[in-house]
């Protein structure tokens, strides 16, 4: 017996050192894998909502943003959810590296693997319709998210670029309405050749988004009107029997 070996064994006996039970390590391992999969699941939710927003983004507004591609990108890219996805991918990476053999994989593989898993999971959740239910909940319950989305809507305060939003204050006639825009200015909007999207019915206090062009100082000719909240899924054009978009206010 070597002196050192004897001393160490003696110390183990004197201090009554015992091996930690297997269950302790099993529990630790389970916690790590659970947090890893939870991160992937939450990443999938973020991915599903991002897919949903991309699918229903107002891509057709591109023509109004020829002056600023960045502004357009900020409008259509679901940055909020992509940041969430990256955050959860970071968590997934951190915990995967702490699994028994996680260190054997290169960072780039773990991160891309986690993102691919989130995309697959997100794709599945998207097909279940979950993001359609979750996104409004976030909008209603999370003030920061609401503020973020509201900031995106400020692009609708660009009448010179053909974008205007506001609340209907008066139905002047079947051809004209008055709105108060987001900055409190009043506009008379010509709605003769307007397509109303999202099954909208003009009504006082209805918040709308208008595409068109200015006419004089406080006049606006609307080519299309969309509901204030909601994107494509809630603003599918009302279609008549022939499948053509129906102008609800067009004089018969």
């Amino acid at each position: 017996m070597t002196d050192t070996g004897q001393k160490i064994l003696q110390k183990i006996k004197e201090d009554n050192v015992r091996p930690y039970p297997k269950s302790r390590f099993l529990f630790r391992r389970s916690v790590i894998w659970t947090v890893f999969f939870l991160s992937i699941l939450l990443g999938s939710v973020a991915c599903a909502i991002a897919m949903f927003q991309l699918r229903h983004a107002e891509w057709d507004l591109y023509q109004h943003f020829s002056h600023s591609l960045i502004e357009f990108a900020l409008l259509v890219i679901p940055i909020f959810w992509l940041i969430f996805l990256l955050g959860f991918t970071g968590f997934a990476y951190y915990y995967f590296r702490r699994t028994e053999q996680g260190y054997r994989y290169r960072t780039v593989w773990i991160i891309s693997g986690s993102i691919v898993l989130s995309i697959i999971g997100g794709g599945f959740l998207y097909t279940t319709g979950l993001p359609e239910k979750l996104e409004p909940i976030f909008f209603d319950k999370v003030p920061f998210y609401r503020e973020w989305q509201a900031r995106k809507q400020r692009v609708w305060m660009s009448p010179a670029q053909g974008l205007l939003a506001g609340r209907i204050t008066k139905m002047i006639s079947g051809r004209k309405i008055r709105i108060e825009d987001l900055q409190g200015n009043y506009w008379e909007v010509d709605i003769v050749d307007t397509i109303w999207r999202g099954r909208l019915k003009p009504a006082i206090n209805l918040k709308i988004k208008i595409l068109g062009h200015t006419k004089g100082e406080s006049g606006f000719v609307a080519t299309e009107i969309r509901p204030w909240r909601g994107q494509g899924h809630r603003m599918r054009a009302f279609k008549g029997k022939g499948g053509h978009e129906k102008n609800l206010l067009k004089p018969k």
Partner: peptide, 22 residues
Amino acid sequence: SEDLLQEIFIKVYRNLNRFNRK
């Protein structure tokens, strides 16, 4: 070094159940 060696082997002993046969 001897002290450190002792601490290392005590740690090895405590964690024997953690040893992964892979």
